[in-house]
Simulated assay, not measured.
Amino acid sequence: MPYTEEEGGRLNNFAVEPKVYQAEAPTQKQKVQYIVLGVGAIVLIGGLLAIAFAVS
């Protein structure tokens, strides 16, 4: 662990910083998967709302 000693004998413990990297843009296949998941989520929520409306 990286400790530093300050005046008066106090120790400071610094966290280990994670490695920084640049994010990559999604591929065409990933974009299609996002669209499919979004449509599925909309259908699921719409179905749940329809059931809730029908029951009440």
Rank of each mutant, 00 (worst) to 15 (best):
R10L: 08
G38L: 01
K31I: 10
Q28G: 00
F14G: 03
V20S: 07
E6A: 10
V36P: 00
A52W: 13
T27A: 05
T27E: 01
F53N: 06
I35R: 08
V16N: 07
V36Y: 10
F53T: 09
V16Q: 08
I45K: 04
G9M: 05
Y21R: 15
F53G: 02
K29A: 15
G46Q: 03
S56E: 09
G9T: 06
V20F: 11
K19D: 13
I35Y: 09
F14T: 11
A50R: 06
P2E: 12
G38M: 00
E5F: 11
M1N: 04
F14Q: 10
G38T: 05
L44D: 02
E5I: 14
F14M: 06
Q22S: 15
A25S: 12
I51H: 00
K19G: 01
A54H: 06
V36C: 08
P18F: 05
Q22F: 13
E5K: 13
Q28K: 15
Y21Q: 14
Y21V: 11
G46K: 01
V55Y: 03
I51Y: 14
K29R: 14
I42T: 13
E6G: 11
Q30N: 02
V39N: 01
S56N: 12
I45D: 00
K29S: 14
K29V: 13
E24P: 00
L11G: 00
E5R: 15
P18E: 02
G40V: 05
A54C: 03
R10S: 08
T4M: 07
I51K: 03
A54T: 05
Q33S: 04
T27Y: 08
V32N: 01
A25D: 08
P2R: 10
S56Y: 09
G47A: 10
V43F: 14
L37R: 09
A41P: 03
S56L: 14
I35S: 05
N13A: 15
Q22Y: 15
K19E: 13
M1E: 08
K19S: 11
Y3T: 06
G46W: 04
L11E: 03
T4F: 07
M1W: 12
N12R: 14
I51C: 03
G46L: 13
N13R: 09
E6T: 11
A23N: 12
Q30M: 05
L49D: 09
G47R: 12
